[in-house]
Design a protein around this nucleic acid. Structure first.
Lengths: 150, 150
DNA sequence: CCAATAGGTTGCAAAATGCAACCTATTGGA
DNA sequence: TCCAATAGGTTGCATTTTGCAACCTATTGG
């Protein structure tokens, strides 16, 4: 596998996986495009209507997401449509999207404010995601640390 | 609790917790500031040096993160320093940071490329985070759906 | 065969970002 | 006691990114 950012641009912090991920999808729109793709959107117009994003920016973001191996672009059977689908790497962002969603539910809404809910096949809300240590106990930021590369 | 964006600006998608979270921390720097705060950074200069961010932008991001209840600002015992600490809401972003980190480890590095590693108190790497259904089985994006608010 | 649909591109204005110089308060040491 | 260094900003200006609206081309269904 060969992973690259745009030609002529460099990683913000090459050794840090968080920074690399932010470099790839950390703008105002990419994650929402991915969210909608997970919710079934596949066509340009569909993303445009759901998001209210400017068309030229959407073009650019879709191109970059394809470039970065997160979306796959193909011609639909209907010859005028293009189909954008999540690659395996794109689907693997599900965990991150769920984590951001659950944080938003807890901290970005007033207690009485309604919001959409992510449910499983049986219509039940998902349990809260939490990092665990190797021993299976919940792990906090203070109880962990970043081991720098040699 | 009262949650607001900047005065004069509106949520990109008010009913969606993912979108609200992105509105709050979805720019090139906020998540990296939070990452460094989790790694022990507390002072303006410390963030500036670790990130290589422009000073005026750092000032702006720190102010917004404080405004949004993610960081807390206080005068240090050393009268010239300010101390920025994660609030409870800020610490609660740990799950999201871990999810983004683990995705980056899996998809933003070539197999032989070195990267920093997050370890628990005993120096052991964390297990991979995965969303589960109420039944405890791993849940994929396709097996879930978003239930819109009435 | 023609209007509607789909997926763009282009030009220009507005906003966000980055850089470097400057400013003020506190501090520690000679 | 004073003064250079430290810390945390602010300001002005250039560059980059974003947003809006108009335009373009190919395909489709009636």
């Amino acid at each position: 596998m060969d992973v690259t950012l745009a030609a002529g641009s460099a990683w913000t912090d090459p050794a840090c996986p968080v920074a690399r991920t932010v470099d790839l999808i950390g703008d105002r729109w990419s994650l929402l495009i991915i969210r909608d793709a997970m919710d079934g959107a596949t066509a340009f117009t569909e993303f445009h209507q759901r998001l209210g994003i400017a068309r030229n920016i959407l073009t650019d973001r879709l191109r970059k997401l394809v470039e970065h191996g997160i979306l796959d672009k193909s011609a639909a059977t209907d010859g005028r449509r293009q189909t954008y689908r999540l690659t395996e790497a794109g689907q693997d962002l599900f965990t991150a999207v769920v984590a951001l969603r659950q944080w938003g539910e807890r901290h970005a809404f007033a207690p009485d404010e309604p919001h959409s809910v992510l449910v499983d096949g049986q219509g039940r809300e998902l349990p809260e995601l939490r990092p665990l240590g190797q021993d299976g106990a919940p792990l906090s930021a203070e109880a962990s640390r970043v081991r720098k590369t040699a």
